[in-house]
Simulated scan of single mutants.
Amino acid sequence: MDKKTIAVDFDGTIVANAYPDIGKPLLFAFDTLKKLQSEGHLLILWTYRSGKKLEEAVAFCKKNGITFYTVNKSYPEEEMSPNISRKINADLFIDDRNIGGMMGWGEIHHLLIEDTNTSKKPNLKAKRPKKGFLSRMEDLFKDQNDTDV
């Protein structure tokens, strides 16, 4: 599978929403982000935070094992000015403000990890090759869009 650039929100997505403070990490958020990075995907922190509050969020993520490719911009060398949009060039966005809400990190985490207990699901592994997280997510969204009228 192709490597993706994924923009991830902070408040309400990685941590519980307690802005301007930092909330508690959401269950499986950091585990999932670490898995995405280990698969070679680029993670961008894309947040409303700026200045000292942004520095605190970046430091919190780093303390929890995540160093982002870049923060609030599309690539590290991008120069920010008032004339440049803060819209991020990413393949996917993980944000609590998605239409229909955000899939929980627990669900995302389970999509990343194959069930090692083959006695429960022997036919699933035999019928399909192992897919990465993003391929499974794309399949899930295709299935949802196919059933929508």
Rank of each mutant, 00 (worst) to 15 (best):
P129C: 04
K63P: 00
Y48E: 04
F60R: 00
G40N: 12
G100F: 05
E56V: 02
E79G: 01
K34S: 12
I14E: 05
L111E: 03
V15N: 04
A18H: 13
G101F: 03
F10E: 11
C61I: 08
F141T: 11
R128W: 05
F68C: 08
S50N: 13
T147P: 00
I84P: 02
F133G: 14
I44E: 02
D148F: 15
K35E: 13
D31Y: 14
K73E: 02
A7W: 04
L27D: 13
K125V: 08
I108G: 00
A90F: 04
N17H: 11
S38K: 15
G101V: 04
A57Q: 06
F93R: 06
N83W: 10
Q144F: 07
K62A: 12
R136S: 13
D115R: 12
H109Y: 15
F93Q: 04
I84D: 02
L43I: 13
G100Q: 03
T32L: 03
L111F: 10
H110P: 00
P20G: 10
N72E: 08
R49N: 08
I14D: 07
D91C: 03
A59E: 02
Q37S: 09
G106F: 09
L33H: 03
A18T: 12
N117Y: 06
P76L: 09
L27P: 07
N145E: 11
L124S: 04
I94K: 09
E39R: 14
F60Q: 02
F30C: 04
F10W: 12
T118H: 08
M1Y: 11
L124R: 11
V15S: 05
R49I: 09
V149S: 14
A16T: 06
H110R: 12
V71M: 08
F133V: 13
R49P: 05
G40C: 10
L140Y: 15
L124T: 08
P20C: 03
M80C: 04
K52W: 01
E138D: 12
N64P: 03
A16M: 03
E56Q: 15
K127E: 09
N145H: 14
N17G: 06
A7G: 08
S74M: 05
I94L: 13
I99G: 00
K24I: 06
N123K: 11
A59S: 10
M102K: 12
I6T: 10
D91Y: 06
T13K: 10
N123A: 11
K87C: 01
N123R: 06
D148G: 03
C61A: 15
D95M: 07
E55L: 07
G100P: 03
E78V: 00
G104Y: 03
